[in-house]
Nucleic acid binder design. Structure first.
Length: 150
DNA sequence: GCCAACGTTGGC
DNA sequence: GCCAACGTTGGC
């Protein structure tokens, strides 16, 4: 069992949207580190903190899980799509996605400010200055520490 | 809206 | 292969 944190802007796709649809293909990610995690590491059943970014109170708002392992993100091959990438082809896909499934809301938003104030979480990439990764691994210990804040 | 941090691109 | 320019992310 592995643990992850995935960011999303609530204006674009928030935890309530995930609850409504149940399962969402996590497409549109155009970052190699994030791509590698989705393509190579994520397994069905892995647990995910769902994080809201670019909003009034950035923080963890829910829990999700991986519902399908990495598979090609064919929105990259669609010239009409927002994240079209002409260098990605059906034969040689450059970008991958996983399916993410709603599990539950957390009882209250666990804000970034609060996470930054926890000394035991100081090693999380999320709380490091300048971190821009939209998908990152979470250690089991950090997972438990954060759940204990709920 | 500002801007620091970071990734990518492309000229050389 | 270096690095300046540029675009994006995302907190504040």
């Amino acid at each position: 069992m592995q643990y992850w944190l995935m960011k999303s802007e609530p204006d674009a796709f928030g935890i309530d949207d995930l609850e409504r649809v149940g399962i969402e293909p996590w497409d549109g990610v155009r970052n190699y580190q994030a791509r590698n995690m989705m393509r190579d590491q994520m397994q069905v059943g892995d647990q995910v903190f769902f994080y809201h970014s670019n909003c009034d109170v950035p923080g963890i708002v829910g829990i999700a899980e991986i519902a399908a392992r990495g598979y090609p993100d064919d929105t990259a091959c669609n010239p009409e799509a927002k994240y079209y990438d002409p260098k990605s082809t059906a034969d040689n896909p450059r970008w991958y996605r996983v399916d993410v499934k709603f599990v539950r809301h957390v009882r209250r938003t666990i804000s970034l400010v609060e996470l930054k104030n926890r000394p035991e979480l100081a090693d999380m990439p999320l709380v490091r200055k300048g971190n821009r990764l939209s998908i990152m691994p979470v250690t089991e210990q950090a997972w438990l520490d954060i759940l204990a804040l709920e």
